[in-house]
Amino acid sequence: MRKINIGIILISIVVVGMLIPVAFSGQSDSVVITYGETTHANSEYKSIVDNFFKTQANVDLSNVNSKIITADEVNKISSGITGKTYSSSQIFSSALVDLNDNDNLEVSVDKSMITTITGNMYISALKSAGITSGHVYVTSPVTATGESALAGIMNSYEVATDVEIPEPVKEAANNEIYTQAEIVENSNVSADQLSSLVDDVKETVKEENITDHQTIVNIIYNYTVVNNINITNNDIENLADSIEQIQNIQGDINAYETQINDVLNSTDVNSAKGFLDGLFK
């Protein structure tokens, strides 16, 4: 009788393993690193970045999937937003995405190296793209603004979930990051103040389904007055453009959010977990 029970348990484990989607069958697939190509090409730089990830994320990097984010990939985004172009010697920012802990979206930024983009900015942009789960870690071997890291973060989500983010969604999220970075670098507003302002405006615009540019401008202006935030009219116009862009693609964002949530909250995974819990009890 004991042999039969062991056989049943072994078969059950195999069946449960078959139920779990490939993307979440182990750490190697649910944790992804994207290295800036400058960092990856320099063994010392890569070691610095890897040590940060090991310490902060507490994961074994030997079996983790990784990708290299090139200057060409970053320039496809940045050149159309800010006009900036980067060489292959300027892409330092690197990111690790861990989907093992997917209850809430959390971003840990190495503040000693990432000088402009804060964790709240990344969270805001990722939520604009429909991403609400996972733990993201961002660092660089040398000081960097962190703007280019968002491209790598979204790439990591695509690798880990096998769900492609629509291009308009990527463009809107990156535009949000670049717009905020430019305002922070050229004004006296703090990154946290600006991120909070953008979140409040986006929430209002989404709730009231506003797509009119001037109305969005007025909402931003009112928030700056109430919160005593001093930014230029040009900054307000640029923020309005960014938020309007996000609002105009809500259909794409909602569709992607549904897809990624179906993967992260797969009923098969939950059923398998419940089955195993019951089995071993």
Rank of each mutant, 00 (worst) to 15 (best):
I219Q: 02
I219S: 07
N222I: 00
N222T: 11
N222R: 08
Y223M: 08
Y223H: 12
T224P: 08
T224S: 04
V226D: 13
N227E: 06
N228E: 14
I229W: 07
I229V: 04
N230L: 09
N230P: 06
N230D: 15
N230Y: 11
I231D: 07
I231E: 12
I231M: 07
T232M: 04
T232S: 15
T232I: 02
N233S: 14
N233E: 10
D235M: 05
D235Q: 06
E237F: 06
E237T: 12
N238V: 02
L239C: 00
L239K: 01
A240C: 11
D241Y: 02
D241W: 01
S242W: 00
E244D: 05
E244V: 04
E244S: 09
Q245D: 14
I246H: 14
I246A: 14
Q247T: 10
Q247M: 03
N248D: 11
I249P: 00
Q250W: 05
Q250P: 07
G251P: 01
G251Y: 08
G251S: 12
D252I: 04
D252R: 07
D252V: 03
I253S: 03
I253W: 02
N254Y: 08
A255F: 08
A255L: 09
A255E: 14
E257V: 04
E257N: 15
E257T: 14
E257P: 03
E257C: 06
T258R: 10
T258L: 12
Q259E: 13
I260A: 08
N261L: 00
D262P: 01
D262G: 05
D262S: 07
V263Q: 09
L264H: 09
N265T: 07
S266F: 04
V269G: 09
N270R: 13
N270L: 12
N270E: 15
S271K: 15
S271T: 14
S271R: 14
S271D: 15
A272K: 09
K273P: 04
F275K: 00
